[in-house]
Amino acid sequence: MTAIYKHRLFWPLVSLLTLIVINFIARPQFLKITVRDGELYGPLISILRESAPLMLVALGMTIVIATRGIDLSVGAIMAVSGAVALTIIDGASDPSNMGTVTIAIVVAILVSLVLGVWNGFLVSVVGIQPIIATLVLMLAGRGVALLITGGFITTVNSDPFSFIASGYVIGLPFAFLIGVVAIVVLSIVERRTALGVLTEAVGINPEASRLAGVRSRGIIWGAYIMSGTLAGVAGLIYASNIKAADANAAGVFIELYAILAVVLGGTSLNGGKFSIAGTVIGVLIIQTLDSTILFLGVKSAQSPVFFAVVVVVVVIVQSARLRDGLAAMSGRLRARRESAQDRDKVEVA
């Protein structure tokens, strides 16, 4: 019993289930799933579908954070990726041509990959602090996206492109399936190879890892490439959903939500041990909370406050350190009182 209680993912799961239960109590139809033309619909399915962009970004962020880094540029990369894809589709004679859309997607992902290479270069080769290195693209990226779209919000009507966000495959939203594929592929790459444990070693103790012969530069660089590429895919889903490339709105603040998801999932911002499953739960918590706000009819002006309050509560519930810290603090206070008494005795002596 204590084993379950102590499992890393116990508290994240409790938080997620609690949110779902609260929603269910407030409005029982929250758990209702309907089948229409062999496709699933319902609030839960919407959460899964809408969580896809954040899921992809948070997965990449998990690996970057495991190396002791951070990637603030993911939102900007999403904007660039959307801008590249829609500009190509918009410029083609037939926006619904499957070939055109494929080229647009491939080019957008490649551009995102290159941006990831740039971030990784700054961090692992030049040696700039990750927060500063990725801040460069975070600030400049949206400008680049605006440059690509010529300063307009490029809109297109392309069925194949719209399919990314709103299509269904085997009864499930295609966007959700992209997320699932990313989770599975990343899990295999990290855990079936030695990449995961080497990444953790580099994150926990870079110098010891270097002396042990680990190619830490390549590992760190790879993490940023992965993060950039996943953000590019997330940007495509976002653009597909609104059928437009909006450089100013795509992925705004998503870097912060992704960091939050990673932390909620139990991965420390100090780097090292990471949990892909934890991040997945973290993303679902955030997305469920988002829906809850709509569902409970919280006024939009108050929703950020509501969101913040819930997040603080969740973080406190999950923080083992806080629980230990409170225990240690009371112990320290006791010790200090005792040693003060000892010292008084010495003074008297």
């Binding site: 444990v197 953790e200 926990i204 110098e207 002396l211 042990a212 012969g213």
Partner: peptide, 20 residues
Amino acid sequence: EEGVVADLTVAENIVLGMQA
């Protein structure tokens, strides 16, 4: 500081050199 990777297990630490 330059030897063990504290948050990894005994097994992971032993294998680290070979794996690298």
